[in-house]
Each structure stands twice: as structure tokens, then as C-alpha cells.
Design a protein around this nucleic acid. Sequence first.
DNA 1: CGATTTTGTTTAATATAGTATACAGTCGTC
DNA 2: GACGACTGTATACTATATTAAACAAAATCG
Lengths: 183, 183
Amino acid sequence: MERMSRNIGLQLKKIRKERSLSLDEVAKATDVSKAQLAQIEKGEANPTVSTIWKIAAGLKISFSSLLQPPKIHFQKYSVDSSTYVSEENGKYRVYSIIPYDPERGWEFYKIEMDPGVIHKSEAHTEGVVETITVFEGQAVILCGEMKEQLMEGETLVFSANQPHQYENPTNSVTVLYLIIQYR
Amino acid sequence: MERMSRNIGLQLKKIRKERSLSLDEVAKATDVSKAQLAQIEKGEANPTVSTIWKIAAGLKISFSSLLQPPKIHFQKYSVDSSTYVSEENGKYRVYSIIPYDPERGWEFYKIEMDPGVIHKSEAHTEGVVETITVFEGQAVILCGEMKEQLMEGETLVFSANQPHQYENPTNSVTVLYLIIQYR
DNA sequence: CGATTTTGTTTAATATAGTATACAGTCGTC
DNA sequence: GACGACTGTATACTATATTAAACAAAATCG
């Protein structure tokens, strides 16, 4: 959520240092207060579009140069209770491994299906692609005309722009990994 | 300045209408209040990066899809007193025709130089290119080793990453047009 | 039709982004 | 080493972004 603010701060500081400007100078050039600039650089602020505009205009740079994340970059995610959702009376369990990020454009889930469970999904918007890998057990995937049975280790990629469903036809738990790519 | 906000509003409304969602639905998906969404769509708001983030994440879209201006687009500028700056005791007059815009990346000036005036400029950052056209009179441009005399109708393009100067060697007013391209 | 739900707008209250000011540490320069 | 100019930081205050709720205008459905 506030990763964006941190990025902006890092980029701003980087550009400022490259040009060896002081906070005062940037404040004068951009008409944004020194205090606010300091907070933005430290990632402790949540700036407004108009402030970002003023910074970009004052420094004669583009938006992307402020928004783009630093080259070297790593991020660690962990699955906890907050990332867990269950449906079908607890027989269909979803763990968010990597949540959606506007920069990235896709999200990553782990799904556990109890025996016999059928889960239905609405159509996504045009251009959404799902990639399902069966890690344990088997799964039957339906989407429009398509009906595919996936065995352990198999992967299916399909456009999810119509209603679709996942089914576990076996007598044991099935574990899937699901990547949803938007647009 | 608030052109950006208007763009975001238009894009948001466009996407929302494409998917035929109500403000309430978007509010629920993004965790941004309905009132705020309405204001943003009307361009009457100045949202925070975190709000934009929440909107992008909730709608599963990228930043660029929110920030990018609508395809057909026009803008009219006019030269008024607020765009006018004079230096060298009024003998060097600058009119901002098109101010810098982070989306565009360049700005456009008209300059009037009285006879004999010499105007010095600091070095710009790496990658800045100036394009000078003499509309009336003559001008001598110096930048590093370069020294060029421009006659009426001639244009000079040069990298402005070192201190440079413009001079009017004639007995009458010289009028120049100047485009500064950043990065 | 009239009742009920859904739409977007407006209002008042709250949270917080933004500013201006004062502060403390650093760097020269004499 | 004291002075001044300049750096970034912390504070109190103001402006405003954001929310929650009430509102009005359609749309839906019997």
C-alpha cells in the first residue's frame, strides 16, 4: 500500500542527490514546503497528486521517473491469517501468496479443495488470463466450451473472460497454484 | 496543475462504465469512500497516492491506465502577464508560451532581446536540449566551445549541459523562439 | 402506478496532508 | 574557536482529503 510512497521518496532523493540540490532549493523550485519534501523522501508521507505534479514540474522530470521503483528491489511475502479466505463451507480454501500490485499486474494464490468440491467463478474482464498448476491431486476445469482434467504436475492456461469452475473429482484434498494475470 | 486530477477522474469513470459498476461497488472493491470516488471522477478532488493505489489495486489495473490522458485531447494556452519574466533590467524579456508539463517533457518560450544585451544561463542537467530559432534580428549563441551566429530564420540545436549565453549583436530588437527539451 | 431498491449527490465530522516556524547540527572562512 | 550561512529535523498550526451519513432522483418490480 505505502510501497508507492516509499518509491517516490527514494526516487526523489536520488534525483535530488544526483543534482546535488538541498531541500530548500527543491522547495523553492517546486513550491512544496521543505518539511513535506523531507517527509516524502523518508517515505513517511502520503502525497497528493498535485504535490507530485508540482515536484515533477519543478524538477522538470516525468511522472514515471518518480513512480518507477528502484532497479534492485526485493520483497518478501508471507502467508498469514489475513491472507486466507475460505468458501463453500470451508471446503475451498484460498491463500493469497502474492497480492495484486498495480506495478506487477498479477496475483498468486494457493488453493486447497476438499474431495468433491465444486467452485464457481464469475467472468473476469477481457484480457484476464488464469494459470492453474495442480500440485497435489487432480482438478477438472470448466470455462465456456472448455473442459479439462488436470493431473498432478499439469498446468492449464486459459482466458477467464467467461464464467468458469474448478472441481476436485477425487477422494482426497487437491492443492492448486493459481496465477491471475490482468490485462 | 489539476489537469492530472481531471485525467484520473476521466479514466476512472471510463473504466467503471466499461465494466458497468456502480460507485458503491467500486467503493467496496477499493475501500475508498463513494463520496471520494464521485469527487475524483468529477475532477474536483486532489487524491492521495494511497487512494490512487487503492483504486488501482481494487480494480486490478495499472497506474498508467489511470494517469494516461484520454486519446483525443486539446489544450489552449495564452500569453499573459503571469507568464512573463524580464531580466537584465528589462532588456531581456521572456514569455512562457507553453509551460513545462511532466507528461510532455518540454517547454516553449518567446524571448525578446534589446540591442547589445548579453544573457547568461547556468548549465542544465545532462540530456537537456535547447532549440533556438531567430524570428527577427540576429543572435550569437555560446555554449562551451561552440560559438554560432544565427541570422533571421536560422535555428540552432544544442545540448545545454554547460553554461551558455545568448547575445544580441545588432542595433535593433531580436526575437527568438526557444524550446527546451528535458531528458 | 406506488413501494422498494439502487443510483449519484450533498452534508457535516474527522483524519491527515501541507505549511510556516523554530531548532540543532555541519561546514567553511576568517 | 567564534561567527555566519546552510544543512536536515521536529514542532504547532492551517488547509483539505477522506469518511460516514443523510438525501434526492431514477430505475426496478409487484
